[in-house]
């Protein structure tokens, strides 16, 4: 996938507020560890593994900060400190494919 200039990619701060893009249009199919997601807003189908699935499911319920997402993932049994990098990368990629976006801070 091409990388383009993306406002979300420059700033990954723990205080950022994230939200899912039109989560009402999400449609999931789950088999084993792989999830397939249809996103009605963009008409795209995505295949996702555990981490982005977890993040998206959480964000579907409401806005969260990066720190809250990290806490949630650690809670779900994610190991190690460098895990926070993976979450940042996941958020960034999810943002590039228009599944999540930065919300204006309240």
């Amino acid at each position: 996938m091409e990388h383009t200039t993306d406002s979300a990619s420059h700033t990954n701060r723990d205080g950022d507020h994230w939200r899912a893009v039109s989560p009402a249009t999400f449609r999931w199919a789950n088999w084993d560890a792989e999830s397939l997601l249809f996103h009605g807003e963009t008409g795209e189908t995505h295949i996702l593994n555990a981490l982005p699935t977890l993040i998206l499911l959480a964000l579907s319920k409401g806005e969260m900060t990066t720190a809250e997402i990290l806490a949630l993932c650690l809670d779900a049994g994610a190991p190690s400190p460098q895990f926070s990098d993976k979450i940042h990368t996941s958020l960034q990629t999810l943002s590039e494919i228009e599944l999540v976006e930065l919300a204006a801070s309240p």
Partner: peptide, 13 residues
């Protein structure tokens, strides 16, 4: 088809 988003896979491993 763009069905598989490689970027996403790469980003999430």
């Amino acid at each position: 088809l763009h069905l598989l988003r490689k970027g996403l896979r790469r980003g999430s491993h």
